[in-house]
Design a protein around this nucleic acid. Structure first.
Lengths: 344, 344
DNA sequence: CTGTTAGCGCTTTCAC
DNA sequence: GTGAAAGCGCTAACAG
């Protein structure tokens, strides 16, 4: 039967170490864990024995006693992995390397599968669960659970839950303020599916920033979907109707890529004639266009970090005390590239 | 202190269930696990009690006894998550929903961090480890470990390890055979970093398929990096030197996207004048170009599935028997879109 | 069929 | 300082 490489010898137990060091299991335990009440000489013998046997403490047994596993479940339906990977990296790092491990479960957008995974995670006694949606629209709450649950990227529809989401309103604002800062005044906005909260929020920010400057959008917001195809078509329509446009805020980097294509077809120079700004800072798209795309980054790694920290705060906090609830919007960040400011 | 939603009551234990059902813990265990030797009436009482208490068996305790956790560690440095997510999905599915859970660790390309994660995974007593590289070049072996290790996507540099990689030679072949099938005869090849095994292997396949048809590549293989930028530049150079080209095999979808850009600049119609084929079938790139990209898909989900199955075969197999070793190349697949065959 | 007993590997009192 | 003993939650013999 085909299989993987043969494995090395079975793991040594604390008992093996104790025997080799000539002490009791209890003493070995104390020595290994650096407790004070062990004689220096004994400690050295135990540590040497552990090294010799390549002893590695069984985390299962420890967790069983401690009632804590140091693991977090990440429940997602983000098939692309675009959002979930940075969030996972942030969660892993929340308490320094190797303190927390993440069990990643992909529900593929299926509620049944999500329930299965939820149950599996609880059986494994994860210390908490981070639910990562694939859009920023509210998603069904998991309800009350025996461990803390934090909703990341997509908020829960239950205000009694804690949700951490990127501040899309601020993102829209940031985009427009940057364009205004580069001297643009005739700004249009092309976005994705208007049913998405992300689309609405970003537009709100865009409009607010323009209003603050005494300006309005050129034309209506062009909503449709988040694709490059739509970016191309929408830009063509907008430019035909409003040739004076000198700046375009896009709802996603994909849309922005399409917009760049069309601007090229129209012989418009970017950023000289028209500045373009994307959203998501999806590197593979943003850094490979010509020119490269200025974009809004949602700081997802920090979001993941924050989510993990909230979980352990909830555990460590006084029992029975309500945790923070509601939707918290985390700051986003502008990443400037050549599509808004010409390279020297 | 800000924290997550308050948690529900502590988990019930088997003891709680047994007491409520008026039986011993052992009997409760048997009933819960559907063992035969329990009277139907008793079983019902136990099940009812478990339901009432929302009992969920502590997997830690079970694993401690069984010597198996039903978890697999996924050790990666694929920051994008482009390869690792499909592999993870495959591994999760290897034995039906919820049987296996995956702990995903991102080493960020740092050897120290990788060692930390490896140790953490072993302490958690994962049943095996899948190592996912970010390119198909051989990577350093983890050496002998107490659990089976399978290298996926990137092979190990130690032939004593088991590695599962996509068959890049077959992929190059497949690409050319498809172009030949659409009547192309003057085929060029633009690829990425020639130091990558993937680049060399794909080129080997490309050349072999052409030779089988009594043909040769038009021009030299254009190697540089895997970017859209390079795709644009290389295509411009190739078309200037060889205007007769009617098919281009690209080493990545990113390169292919750049090639499409240049073909447009040169007023070449795709696929009528020139057919273009990408590699990786990265949906966000392949389905959003104009026209959409035909590409080679590495079947990573199947690769992940295979990797997980090998791990459990190694565990279940006779102890002391060597597992299969060496690099195994798994079949890839052609995905046809508009860049090689015109839409009706 | 059911319950008693032992024990997975570890930590933690609490005597000595 | 050190070690014996109890126990985390569960399963697996083995008696009854």
């Amino acid at each position: 039967m085909p299989a993987a490489r043969r494995t090395a010898a079975r793991n040594a137990t604390l008992g093996d170490v104790a025997k080799l060091a000539g002490v009791s299991i209890a003493t070995a335990s104390k020595a290994i864990n650096g407790r004070e009440d062990v004689a220096p000489g004994t400690r050295d013998r135990v540590v040497a024995a552990a090294a010799e046997l390549a002893f590695s403490p069984n985390q299962l047994a420890r967790s069983l006693i401690a009632g804590r596993t140091g693991t977090v479940g990440l429940l997602t339906s983000d098939l692309e992995g675009r959002f979930v990977i940075p969030i996972l990296m942030g969660a892993e790092d929340a308490f320094g390397a190797g303190q927390v491990n993440v069990i990643l479960c992909d529900a593929r957008g299926d509620a049944i599968r999500e329930q299965h995974h939820l149950k599996a995670l609880l059986n494994r006694r994860v210390d908490g669960i981070i639910v990562v949606g694939r859009q920023t629209d509210p998603r069904p709450s998991l309800g009350e659970q025996p461990v803390p649950v934090v909703y990341a990227y997509a908020p829960s529809d239950d205000p009694a839950d804690l949700s951490l989401t990127p501040d899309n309103v601020a993102g829209g604002r940031l985009a427009v303020e940057h364009l205004l800062g580069t001297g643009r005044r005739r700004i249009a906005h092309i976005s994705g599916d208007p049913a998405y909260a992300a689309a609405q929020d970003r537009t709100t920010g865009v409009r607010a920033a323009l209003a603050d400057a005494g300006l309005e959008l050129v034309g209506d917001v062009a909503y449709n979907d988040w694709s490059e195809h739509w970016g191309r078509d929408a830009a063509a329509m907008l430019l035909a109707a409003h040739p004076e446009i000198d700046g375009i805020v896009c709802g996603s980097d994909q849309i922005a890529r399409g917009v760049l294509d069309t601007l090229r077809d129209f012989d418009k120079r970017v950023p000289d004639d028209v500045a373009v700004i994307g959203y998501d800072n999806w590197e593979v798209l943003a850094t490979q266009s010509r020119p490269e795309l200025t974009s809004i980054d949602a700081n997802l790694q920090q979001l993941g970090r924050a989510a993990a920290m909230r979980i352990f705060e909830a555990i460590d906090g006084a029992d029975g005390v309500d945790g923070e609830t509601g939707e918290h919007r985390l700051p986003v960040r502008l990443v400037i590239r050549g599509s808004t400011i010409a390279r020297r």
